[in-house]
Amino acid sequence: MKIALRLLFIHMVFQLQAMAGVGHLKSALLREPQVIRIEENNGMTTFSFCLYKKSDKCMSLGREEGYSEDELLELSRKMMQKAGVNRILKPVLSLIGYSAPVAAMATPIGPVGAMFVGSASVSFTNMVDQNLALSPEATKRLTKVLMPSSAYFEQRMAYPVSILDFSNYLEEELTKIDRCKLVPFGMSRMKWQCESFVPTNEFKS
């Protein structure tokens, strides 16, 4: 009887251990040993940026107590839609950036004007290329990282972006949920950003 109880206890301990999951996201760049650690404990998932895989030196991204499964699923679905939009939006934007100077040459603004349009188009193309929120690959990766199940996988990015930049992007998307809770009064400039997180009627006052 005693042995059976002991076995049951050991089994339960193992079960508990199995329930708490740890997953890592590694960078695609070999020079970066840093990882994003995703830990699941009692239904709450925490994200942290660590110096290397087994390091204790970690910075938490977003809320320290973690995010519930429903919140993450909702955010993840939103990111998946965004990735679908970005797949079309990004090529269109970069095409605009490339063709703007050519189009400007066809108008009577002259060579000097075309020079200004050209330099503006270079910075526009840079912005489009480097903005992670516009990149379909980064948004798709974020969908995968935000899924509650990602605490049980080891992942490596296939897309050559610095993991530092990606962790900033992740933190930005995670803190959006809480940032919007801080503005119950009529800050009209936050309305557009927060509409999807807070019902619109809360902004009237």
Partner: peptide, 9 residues
């Protein structure tokens, strides 16, 4: 992990 995340997705 990559294959499994795609299945989960």
């Amino acid at each position: 992990g990559e294959v499994l995340t795609e299945i989960e997705m």
